[in-house]
């Protein structure tokens, strides 16, 4: 296998524009050399940004690195390029399954099955997902090298896992009630200090003022508040009328992408809140 890596690397060095990076990246990923796989996948993606397989490879590496948020984006991109891409459908199914959205997971697996009816992995994964067996499903999908302990299936989500599947769940996502009390997630400032409670307290006032401004200025119902700071970006959303969700990311995450992340997190939070109620 080492020889394979050596041979493929030599081939890629000789012709950097070739598609051999797909085989090399996957081989490195399977061997657990994730940093090397990451470099190869990213290099290939830079040369072939419109290749669905390149996005799929990069997403697999990211999923192995537990960067599920970016993995989601990459598989999403692969599907935009090739709507029936089996790898991307399986990948998204896996991520949906991880956050407890069984319906979406099954829907993606069924789409994958239509595209590849004879793929035994998909057949197995559909059965497992419906039965709520996460590790078996992940193994059927061939997504993770070392799948995490059983996902929750249709069972109620635990509070600590409100934002499971979204990168930075314990650091950059904060769910609070209308009076500024923390419901889930956590926020740390750049020095590592937990600032969840003071930020939640301030945000209650921000949300009241946002609602009042939207009403008095004829802007309708407020749907989101995004702000660009000197050291980071924030997006405030309202998953329900009684709850607020703050997503914080560094400046490398564009505001538009942050809004998408917030939207997804808001949906996860909404499901969790409904189950609590």
């Amino acid at each position: 296998m080492a020889d394979d890596v050596k041979a493929l690397s030599a081939q890629l060095a000789q012709d950097p524009a070739s598609l051999v990076f797909l085989r090399l990246g996957e081989l490195l990923r399977q061997r657990g050399q994730l940093d090397a796989a990451h470099r190869v996948a990213l290099g290939g993606l830079e040369r072939h940004p419109h290749l669905a397989d390149a996005h799929d490879l990069y997403a697999r590496v990211l999923a192995d690195k537990r960067d599920y948020e970016r993995a989601f984006d990459e598989w999403d991109m692969a599907l935009r390029i090739a709507p029936a891409h089996v790898g991307a459908l399986k990948g998204l199914a896996f991520l949906y399954f991880k956050v407890g959205d069984v319906a979406q997971a099954v829907s993606h697996l069924e789409a994958a099955q239509r595209a590849a009816p004879d793929d035994p992995g998909i057949i197995q994964a559909v059965a497992m997902v419906r039965g709520g067996q996460a590790s078996a499903a992940a193994s059927g999908l061939g997504i993770e090298r070392a799948p995490e302990p059983a996902a929750r299936g249709a069972a109620p989500l635990e509070e600590a896992r409100v934002f499971a599947g979204l990168e930075g769940a314990q650091e950059g996502l904060l769910l609070l009630d209308a009076s500024g009390r923390v419901l889930g997630g956590a926020l740390r400032d750049p020095s590592g200090r937990d600032v969840s409670e003071p930020v939640a307290a301030y945000l209650a006032g921000v949300s009241q003022e946002a609602a009042r401004s939207a009403k008095l200025l004829g802007l309708g119902t407020w749907t989101g508040l995004s702000a660009e700071g000197r050291q980071g970006h924030v997006h405030l959303a309202q998953p329900t009328s009684e709850a607020l969700l703050l997503v914080v990311r560094d400046r490398s995450v564009p505001m538009g992408r942050l809004a998408i992340i917030a939207q997804r997190a808001a949906q996860a939070a909404q499901r969790w809140l409904e189950q609590q109620g």
Binding site: R188, V195, V199, A227, G229, R230, Q231, G232, V234, L246
Partner: peptide, 10 residues
Amino acid sequence: AMTAAGVGES
């Protein structure tokens, strides 16, 4: 809120 969150001035 942004200062408390450590993301700096808006």
